[in-house]
Design a protein around this nucleic acid. Structure first.
Lengths: 256, 256
DNA sequence: CGGCGGCTTGATTCGAGTCAAGAACCGTGG
DNA sequence: CCACGGTTCTTGACTCGAATCAAGCCGCCG
């Protein structure tokens, strides 16, 4: 879907402000300079593609509202989800600096939402004037790398239960960090499976196990966390890899 | 140890030059400015720690000779290897920009070798004067991210055989890109297992399978590739994620 | 010589995938 | 209002790849 009218420009980029602040960007001038580059690119519907893996990147995207995912489509048609994106997250900033044209990563909307785009040429100019902004953006890409590294450990070393639970912890923590305190995670079991590297059937059994345990609401088909503390324990979750100092204390396991 | 006597100061940083060039850094001034920052930090022995996961980073490291690995030690004592480093690779450049103090990543030597260090304070100053250098370094960190992303797909979606073979392809390709054309990969089966997320026993069986197939030398305990073409086929290896234009053509599967 | 790190082998277990089918929950249109 | 078709979620039976356990072996170095 292409350009709809800007819904009150200032309001819509708020998540991006939070993001840059959390990345340690302090100057007001840098912030404003960056915000000016963002063009709101209308609404997205569930499943809609934001970035085609094969396209040549002349711009990058930021998610403003909703949830998206970075993924790869494999030869056999299956989908591997690398990470989920929440409001304020960059979708493909890595392509600013390393413009792979191969099918490395595609991005699609998971819920309805809004994205903004940043033209690379504009960014080139702005970065020359504001080197600190460049550092913040570099940091943003490293944060994503950190998330993927964590997932690698997860997928290769932990049980199905732990993988799923860790995934949930991460989404919950990241959403809380941007002010979304809802206990329901708007992902379906197929999304979870593709992100955890498990079959849907097995994710289903795992989710049911969690409902039995009272960690997730038993009387709903959605993923709604009722016992956060337990969740953290099961996953052995240590949120430091997310670099979110402000809410970190909420995401540490109680050491008994 | 890698043969011969002590190379002269200029000689020893050659891999770094190659690296920066391959990252698209063209200017001679930037290159020289960066090389000046490198302090050679003596020899390392196998198993020796290069970067402690818990230390506060005041400098970053480049590998000059030998092989190293980035890894994490898990609670149960097992080791997960994220990536291997070859001459010219940065070991922990990510900590320049995102100084996690948690045990996210440690780095250790796998063979004897040499490392150089770059003081972060020095780098700060140099980057102010040479913004293009900053971009190249950013790119370096993104390349590593790309490698880890690839490994994530591998580990979560492919069979043990493919995982191991893909790992071998990658090391072979990366080494060729820096002028190391040796068919023997100086890793032992434990290293392979920790990097592929498999048990040693299973890696051993897999390696033997490859020896049966004639892909690896059957009459040696080391990992020596004799049939590169077959290796590529088994792994379905597509080297584009490594961004090495110069040798890419050698690392594409023959489309039958 | 003995000890130790790396490699091999076989037997056994078990977690997660696959297949197949059915049920619950939409939205849409007659 | 209900009948539909399409997702998404559930359940059960069966299979199989890889982990684990447990020795034994080879080659190296002190």
């Amino acid at each position: 879907m292409t350009s709809v009218g800007k819904p009150s420009g200032a309001e819509v980029v708020r998540p991006v402000i939070g993001k840059l602040r959390s990345l340690g960007l302090e100057g007001e001038a840098e912030l404003q300079a960056f915000l000016k580059l963002i063009k709101v690119r209308g609404c997205l519907g569930r499943g809609e593609e934001i970035i085609d893996a094969g396209s040549s990147p002349s711009h990058s995207s930021v998610l403003l509202t909703g949830i998206a995912c970075s993924y790869r489509r494999l030869q056999d048609g299956s989908r591997h989800i690398f990470t989920f994106h929440h409001p304020g997250d960059f979708c493909d900033l890595h392509r600013y600096v390393l413009p792979e044209r191969n099918g490395a990563v595609a991005v699609a909307a998971i819920t309805d939402g809004l994205v903004g785009t940043i033209c690379h040429k504009d960014l080139d100019q702005t970065l020359v004037q504001h080197p600190k902004l460049g550092l913040a953006l570099w940091r943003a890409t490293m944060l994503e790398a950190s998330i993927i590294r964590e997932k690698l450990v997860n997928v290769s070393r932990r049980s199905a239960l732990q993988r799923v639970v860790h995934l949930l912890c991460e989404q919950l923590a990241r959403r809380e960090a941007i002010g979304i305190n809802c206990a329901t995670i708007p992902l379906n079991q197929v999304d979870l499976a593709d992100a955890a590297g498990l079959s849907v059937v097995h994710v289903n059994r795992t989710v049911q196990g969690l409902r039995m345990l009272g960690v997730l609401t038993p009387d709903s088909r959605s993923i709604e966390v009722t016992d956060k503390k337990r969740l953290l324990q099961i996953a052995n979750f240590d949120a430091r890899y997310l670099s979110m100092p402000k809410v970190l204390s909420n995401w540490t396991i109680d050491t008994q």
